[in-house]
C-alpha cells in the first residue's frame, strides 16, 4: 500500500519520535510512506490567521506537487491533516477559490485538479490495514496496559472523515488489537490548548490540568496521542501544572505509533523512539520490553 507522506514541520523538529515510530510501525504493516519531495509548511493555524488566500495557496502547493503520484496523502500531524484536507475540500467546493489558487500556482507551473484524498495515519491503519493484519504482527501484546486514548481536536474535527467528531472510537479499536486496554476517557476529543500554551499559558494550563486529571482518575498508566502538539503540551507542561495547581502528575504520554512499535517488538530506541521523554516511561514499558529482549535472543 503506497501513500504520499506529508510529514509536517513539527515531526521534523521537536517531535521526531512521532515520525520515527510512525515510519517503523507503518513498515511493519506494509504501509509504504513515500515522503513528498520539497514539501512546504502546511501553514498550520497561524498562517490562516493573517492571510486567507495565501494560506490556501501554501497548502495547495503541496497538493499540486503530490497529485502527479495519484496516491492518497498520509499525514501524522492532525494540524497538517486538517489544513491540507480543508484546502482540498474548499478548493473543490468553491470555484472562485479554485481559480484564484490555480492562477497563483500557474505562476510556478503547477495546477491542482482536486483529485487527491488527505488521510491521517490512524485512519489508514484502522481502515486500510485492518484488524487481522494488525493483530498478525503483534509479538508482545500490551496486556494489562491501561491507556487513555487521546485524539485531541483536529484528528476528528471539523470533518469527521473517518470517525465520530466528538466520540471517536478508532484509537480504542487499535489499542485493543494490540492487546492494550483503553480506559474510558470522556475528554478524548477535547482541546489541549494548542499554541495557547505559548501565548496564553494560564488558559492552556487549565485545559491541560483537566485532561491530566481525567486521565489519572480513569486509572490509565499512560496517555496515547496522535498529535505532536498534544504530546508536547501534555508531557512538557506537567511540571508547570504541578507547581501551579499543587498536583503530582507524572503521566507518561506516548504516540499511539510508539505503542504499536512496542507491541510489534521493534527495537526500543531506534524504532519505537523511546528515550527522549520528559516523563519517564520505563515503569510502564518494562513488562513488554522484557518480552522483546527475550524474543531477540
Amino acid at each position: 500500500m503506497d501513500y504520499t507522506y506529508f510529514p509536517g514541520c513539527s515531526v521534523k523538529g521537536l517531535n521526531k519520535s512521532y515520525e520515527i515510530s510512525a515510519l517503523s510501525a507503518s513498515k511493519v504493516l506494509g504501509v509504504n510512506l513515500l515522503e513528498l519531495n520539497d514539501w512546504n509548511c502546511c501553514g498550520a493555524t497561524a498562517y490562516m490567521s493573517i492571510y486567507e488566500l495565501r494560506a490556501h495557496i501554501l497548502a495547495a502547493r503541496n497538493l499540486a506537487l503530490a497529485e502527479k503520484y495519484n496516491r492518497d496523502i498520509a499525514t501524522i500531524c492532525p494540524a497538517c491533516y486538517v489544513v491540507l484536507d480543508k484546502t482540498n475540500r474548499y478548493i473543490c467546493e468553491n470555484k472562485e477559490l479554485r481559480e484564484n489558487v490555480n492562477a497563483a500556482l500557474g505562476e510556478i507551473n503547477l495546477k491542482y485538479y482536486g483529485s487527491l484524498k488527505v488521510r491521517h495515519l490512524l485512519d489508514i491503519i484502522v481502515n486500510d490495514v485492518g484488524e487481522e493484519a494488525v493483530k498478525s504482527k503483534v509479538t508482545a501484546p500490551l496486556k494489562g496496559l491501561k491507556v487513555a486514548p487521546y485524539y485531541g481536536c483536529q484528528t476528528v474535527r471539523p470533518f469527521g472523515a473517518f470517525d465520530d467528531k466528538e466520540n471517536p472510537q478508532t484509537m480504542e479499536q487499535l489499542l485493543r488489537w494490540i492487546g492494550a486496554e483503553p480506559v474510558k476517557f470522556p475528554l478524548k476529543a477535547k482541546c489541549c490548548g494548542g499554541m495557547q500554551r505559548v501565548t496564553n499559558e494560564e488558559a492552556a494550563l487549565k485545559l491541560i490540568e483537566r485532561l491530566l486529571k481525567a486521565a489519572s482518575r480513569s486509572g490509565a498508566d499512560c496517555i496515547a496521542t496522535a498529535c505532536p502538539l498534544c504530546q508536547m503540551n501534555l508531557e512538557a507542561s506537567q511540571d508547570r501544572v504541578n507547581s501551579i495547581f499543587g498536583t503530582h502528575y507524572s503521566m507518561p504520554t506516548l504516540y499511539f505509533t510508539q505503542l504499536l512499535g512496542l507491541a510489534f517488538g521493534r527495537p526500543i530506541e531506534s524504532e519505537v523512539a523511546l528515550g527522549q521523554e520528559l516523563v519517564a516511561v520505563d515503569k510502564i514499558i518494562e513488562p513488554y520490553k522484557v518480552s522483546v529482549i527475550k524474543r531477540e535472543r
Binding site: 493555524t45 486538517v82 481536536c153 483536529q154 474535527r157 471539523p158 469527521g160 467528531k165 466528538e166 477535547k190 482541546c191 490548548g193 494548542g194 499554541m195 495557547q196 501565548t199 496564553n200 488558559a203
Partner: peptide
C-alpha cells in the same frame, strides 16, 4: 478570536 485554538467544537 485570539484565544481560539481552532478546535472546531463550535463548528461541529
Amino acid at each position: 478570536m485570539w484565544l481560539c485554538t481552532s478546535c472546531y467544537l463550535c463548528t461541529v
